[in-house]
């Protein structure tokens, strides 16, 4: 049984447009993702594809102008907003994207220690700092004294010592050097091996490929493909969706060739397949209706042409 399951999630935002009028923007539509115990799922996609919002929806920390539909279940039971509050930080932890989540007036060492639920807090904190290459002096520093990379590692260690079952890491790696990235990723692996689940939200496909078991590719607020990580290694022929292929080809280690255009804005989504305007394989049918996600070769894809 999967530990966390997201079914048909949609999130829309009420926003002011010109002057005083409001409109509803659908930023996530019919999104499906499952997270298994002992597994790392990497969620990849461009900024604005709804990756972070998925994390916020799971934890129930979306801003008040958001409306959510769909079902999220955790350990087989529905995650209601009351339950989200109860499990937040105890069963499910977020490693946030922004360094502003640290308390500016507290030594970072003490901040990490407050997250330790059982055992010797100081020892646990020192151990995790050492593994993430944070020197012992860092304990006594305030967040403003940290460099970007150090702050990110501090956030990471907070989640790691807290003894949770699910970690959702929102862009934990950008701006870190390769050695530290490797350490952090190994930590996630170890964490998963202990029977926990990790959702790694990132646009950095390279790190995702190093460590994840499964990859979910997001585009314009929905999942276009969910596949085993092996399909993304080697050449691109095992990749199902044309967007995932384009993403793969644009990597500096592959062809470094981008496709033109950009992801549609939530206020101007195409009627049919969301990727159709940029897709080489697009046919008139693609413009008619958004394809449903379907099973294909031990993975899932949202494209009528994928084979």
């Amino acid at each position: 049984m999967s530990i966390l399951e997201v079914k048909n999630l949609s999130v829309s935002f009420k926003q002011y447009t010109a002057g005083l009028k409001q409109t509803n923007h659908k930023v996530i539509s019919s999104l499906n993702v499952t997270l298994e115990a002992g597994e790392i799922l990497a969620v990849v996609g461009a900024s604005g594809s709804g990756k972070s919002l998925l994390a916020h929806a799971i934890l129930g920390i979306l801003p008040s102008n958001a409306s959510v539909s769909g079902v999220i279940t955790f350990e087989g039971e529905e995650l209601t907003s009351a339950r989200q509050k109860a499990v937040r930080g105890k069963e499910i932890a977020l490693v946030p994207q922004s360094v502003n989540f640290l308390d500016p007036l507290m030594h970072v060492g003490s901040q990490v220690r407050t997250s330790v639920k059982k055992g010797d807090a100081v020892k646990a904190q020192r151990a995790v700092f050492e593994r993430l290459h944070l020197r012992q002096e860092v304990e006594q520093m305030y967040p403003f004294q940290l460099s970007g990379g150090m702050a990110r590692r501090t956030l990471l260690s907070t989640a790691m010592v807290s003894g949770v079952k699910v970690i959702i890491a929102d862009e934990p790696t950008p701006g870190l050097d390769p050695v530290v990235i490797k350490e952090a990723l190994d930590q996630f692996r170890e964490f998963a091996n202990q029977g926990c689940a990790v959702m790694l939200i990132t646009h950095d496909i390279e790190s995702a490929l190093q460590i994840a078991d499964k990859i979910a590719v997001f585009y314009a607020g929905t999942t276009v493909e969910i596949a085993k990580v092996e399909d993304f290694l080697g050449q691109s022929e095992a990749i199902r969706h044309p967007y995932s292929k384009a993403l793969w080809r644009a990597l500096p280690q592959n062809d470094f060739i981008p496709i033109p255009g950009s992801q549609p804005h939530p206020s101007a989504l195409p009627t049919g397949c969301l990727f159709a305007p940029r897709c080489e394989m697009a046919t008139p049918e693609c413009w008619e209706a958004q394809p449903d996600i379907r099973n294909l070769r031990d993975g899932m894809v949202r494209c009528i042409h994928a084979t």
Binding site: A46, I205, A250, F256
Partner: peptide, 13 residues
């Protein structure tokens, strides 16, 4: 770190 926060396609573009 001009394209660090961006996806591969935008980075390449």
């Amino acid at each position: 770190e001009m394209t660090t926060m961006l996806d591969a396609i935008t980075q390449a573009q």
